[in-house]
Design a protein around this nucleic acid. Structure first.
Length: 368
DNA sequence: AGTCCTTTGAAGTAC
DNA sequence: GTACTTCAAAGGACT
C-alpha cells in the first residue's frame, strides 16, 4: 500500500534532483529539517512559492495524495507543489501523509516511530477512517506493494491509529497493477549492462516476435524499492499468454496447463509460479529459432537441442541470461516476498521422473 | 482431461 | 555436505 503510494508519488511528485539538493543544503545551512521545509511549502496556505515550483503533479494521473492534500489543506485551485517522497528517509512518507492529512493544525508531527502514540487526535482518526471508506479500492490496490522489510508502512500507521476500533483494515491478498500509474521505466541501457537479447524480429507461428527487451521495456512497471532504487518488473499479467501482444492463440495443451496454473489452492490463494532460471530465459528466447531451424515442434526434441546449445554456449554469453534470471528472481521476490518454491511443491501432479537411459524408479512412498 | 517427454538451474528436503 | 526432488516452459503424443 505504502510502497505503491510512494511510487505513485515518485511519478507525480518527483523533484528535480538539483532542486532537492538545493533544498537540503538550504535546510542544513538554516538548521532546519528539510522534510519539514518541504511540508511547510506543501501545506502552506499562503501564496508563497513551493520549494520546487516548476515541478507539478501530473494532471493526467489522478493521485490519491494530491486529492487528500488538496482536500485537507484547503487548496482548491492550481497544482499541489511537488515534493519528493524519498524512500531513503524512513519516516518521510508517513509523516508527509499524516501532516498532509492534518492540514491546518499547528502540531508538529513526530517523525520518530517511537512517537506514534503521540499522534492520535480525533480529527486524524476521522480523516483516516474517511480515507479508508472513500478510497478502499485504491488502498486495496496498493496494499500489495508493502515492503515488509520497512517499518514505516502506512498500513502499520493505520493499524496503530485504528487499533482500538473494530474496523478491519483492508488488506489485499495479492498485488493489483495499474501499469499506467507508474513512471516509464528507464531505458534498458540503464537497467541492464547491455542488450540482453539480440534476436532479430522473426516469425513464430506466423506471428512476428517482439524482442524481449522491447517487450519488457514497454511493459515494465515499478514495483518497489531495492537498495534505494526503483525496481521494475513485468506485471503478473505478463505471465499470462494473453498479455503478450504477439502471443498466438493457445492450443489445448497449453490452455490446460494454464488453467491449472490459474487454479487456486485450498486456501484460495492464486498459484504463484517459480521465476525462470537462466536456461529457461535462454530457452524462451531461442525456442522459436530452433523450431525454425530444425523444423521440429516436439518440445522434447527442441529442448534437447537447446540443452546442447546451452552447454556449448560460452560463459560470457551465458552471463546475460544469468543476470536476466537474477533480475526476474529479484522482481519475483519483490512481488511475492512471502513466496517460497516449496509453496508449489505438490501442487502439480506427482510423476515418476525418468531421466536419460536410467531405468524407471519405483517410488514406494511419496516425499515428505 | 491429464500426463509424459526433455532440458538446466534454483531451491527445497532428506539423511 | 551430498544426493535427490520439484518445478519453472513448451506443445505434440499418448493414455
Amino acid at each position: 500500500m505504502k510502497a505503491m503510494a510512494k511510487d505513485k508519488g515518485r511519478e507525480t511528485l518527483t523533484m528535480d534532483l538539483l532542486a532537492e539538493v538545493e533544498l537540503f543544503e538550504k535546510a542544513t545551512v538554516q538548521g532546519e529539517d528539510p522534510l519539514q521545509l518541504m511540508l511547510e511549502a506543501l501545506l502552506d496556505e499562503t501564496n508563497e512559492p513551493a520549494p520546487v515550483p516548476n515541478v507539478e503533479f501530473d494532471s493526467n494521473s489522478p493521485d490519491l495524495l494530491q486529492d487528500i492534500v488538496k482536500d485537507l489543506s484547503g487548496e482548491t485551485e492550481g497544482p499541489v507543489p511537488a515534493v519528493e517522497f524519498d524512500a531513503n528517509i524512513p519516516d518521510s512518507f508517513p509523516t508527509m501523509m499524516l501532516e498532509a492529512m492534518l492540514g491546518d493544525t499547528d502540531d508538529r508531527l513526530p517523525v520518530s516511530e517511537d512517537d506514534w502514540d503521540a499522534i492520535t487526535p480525533d480529527s486524524l482518526l476521522e480523516k483516516l477512517e474517511a480515507l479508508l471508506t472513500e478510497t478502499t479500492d485504491q488502498i486495496l490496490s496498493i496494499d500489495g506493494f508493502c515492503d515488509p522489510s520497512r517499518t514505516d508502512s502506512l498500513q502499520e500507521i493505520l493499524e496503530v491509529l485504528l487499533g482500538e476500533t473494530a474496523e478491519p483494515i483492508p488488506v489485499a491478498q495479492e498485488p493489483q497493477f495499474d501499469p499506467h500509474s507508474f513512471p516509464s521505466p528507464p531505458t534498458l541501457s540503464t537497467v541492464l549492462a547491455g542488450p540482453v537479447f539480440d534476436t532479430q524480429p522473426q516469425l513464430c507461428k506466423n506471428v512476428p516476435l517482439v524482442p524481449y527487451t522491447q517487450f519488457a521495456q514497454e511493459n515494465l512497471v515499478a514495483i518497489g524499492m531495492f537498495n534505494g532504487e526503483v525496481v521494475y518488473a513485468l506485471p503478473p499479467q505478463a505471465f499470462s499468454p494473453s498479455f503478450f501482444p504477439t502471443a498466438p492463440p493457445l492450443n489445448t495443451s497449453t490452455s490446460r496447463k494454464r488453467r491449472m496454473s490459474n487454479q487456486k489452492d485450498e486456501s484460495g490463494q492464486s498459484y504463484i509460479k517459480k521465476p525462470p532460471n537462466a536456461f529457461m530465459v535462454y530457452r524462451q528466447e531461442q525456442r522459436c529459432k530452433v523450431i525454425t531451424e530444425l523444423n521440429v515442434r516436439d518440445c522434447a526434441v527442441v529442448n534437447k537441442e537447446l540443452g546442447k546449445r546451452w552447454t556449448n554456449l560460452p560463459m560470457q554469453e551465458k552471463v546475460k541470461y544469468y543476470e536476466e534470471a537474477d533480475r526476474q528472481r529479484l522482481c519475483h521476490e519483490q512481488l511475492y516476498p512471502k513466496w517460497s518454491p516449496s509453496d508449489n511443491y505438490g501442487k502439480k501432479q506427482k510423476r515418476i521422473r525418468r531421466k536419460g537411459p536410467k531405468p524407471m524408479t519405483v517410488c514406494t512412498a511419496p516425499p515428505l
